[in-house]
């Protein structure tokens, strides 16, 4: 047993790697040999985790992935607990439909971050994802519960069809953010384009945001400026084409 299981990418991926079972909770219960045997698909062909990663440690609730995993998809998908740290970029479906634990991505994330499985109505249902870089399209789509933080920009359709939960975006986002959400919060520290079916409510200091920001500083060491912690936010209620109990909170200073 060790404190951390470290998987270091041996060489750059020149094909797509589908790593749906690579989660912190799975590695927490597995020895090094079992981790090496975890199934993946590489270029559409069955393979094993051990074919691509050097493995250090075993049976630890913290999983560290090192390397450029831009072409690896599904990492952390379905995770139920533990801490997954990724030192590098990661591909699509990271943390998709996860229900617990934390994923800390020290790089960019691909499309469908914390999103739903194909055909499923619910995305992530619990836990936290922090992306230190940018996120692709459909981040937090169909989010049911949990917190997703994106320190950089996000692609189109962020938070689309959210059911609940929170997304905090520090950079800019593309089109369609928050469209068709029922409940939940999209917090943007930059100006954000809103669907026409959101209606302005007021400008105020949401008390839960300061708690969230201070927690993120402490837990993840994120440097969130005091002007955001103590700032005022414009509240837009929506999506009024849906339940209308969601919100976009846009920092205004």
């Amino acid at each position: 047993m060790s404190e951390t299981v470290t998987l270091t990418l041996r060489s750059a991926l020149d094909r797509d790697l589908v790593a749906l079972g690579l989660t912190a909770d799975r590695c927490a219960a597995a020895g090094a040999k079992q981790i090496a045997e975890l199934p993946v698909f590489y270029g559409g062909q069955p393979a094993r985790v051990g074919d691509f990663f050097a493995i250090q440690g075993e049976r630890a609730a913290r999983l560290l992935l090192v390397g450029d995993l831009t072409r690896a998809s599904g990492i952390g998908a379905g995770m139920t607990g533990g801490d997954l740290v990724i030192e590098g970029h990661v591909g699509r479906d990271a943390g998709a439909w996860m229900s617990g634990g934390t994923i800390d991505i020290h790089g960019d994330a691909g499309d469908n971050l914390g999103g739903a499985a194909p055909g499923a109505s619910r995305g992530m249902t619990g836990g936290e994802i922090v992306v230190r870089g940018r996120a692709g399209t459909d981040a937090a789509a169909s989010l049911r519960r949990g917190l997703i933080v994106i320190a950089g920009d996000a692609g189109d359709r962020m938070g689309q069809r959210m059911i609940a939960g929170s997304v905090l975006l520090c950079g800019k986002t593309g089109r369609g953010a928050g469209r068709w959400i029922k409940r939940g919060s999209i917090v943007s520290l930059a100006p954000i384009e809103r669907p026409a079916t959101f209606r302005y409510a007021c400008t105020y200091q949401p008390p839960h945001l300061s708690v969230t920001f201070l927690y993120l500083r402490k837990r993840y060491g994120l440097s969130i400026d005091h002007r955001y912690v103590a700032g005022r936010y414009a509240r837009y209620s929506g999506d009024l084409a849906e339940l209308g109990k969601g919100e976009i909170l846009e920092w205004v200073g």
Binding site: R183, Y204, P206, P207, V211
Partner: peptide
Amino acid sequence: GFQASKVIGGARYWRIPVMEGEFL
């Protein structure tokens, strides 16, 4: 029915709308 909850760091909080803004 207008209240909303947030889970922050594993603890759940309730945001209760009031005339001033929100009570957490």
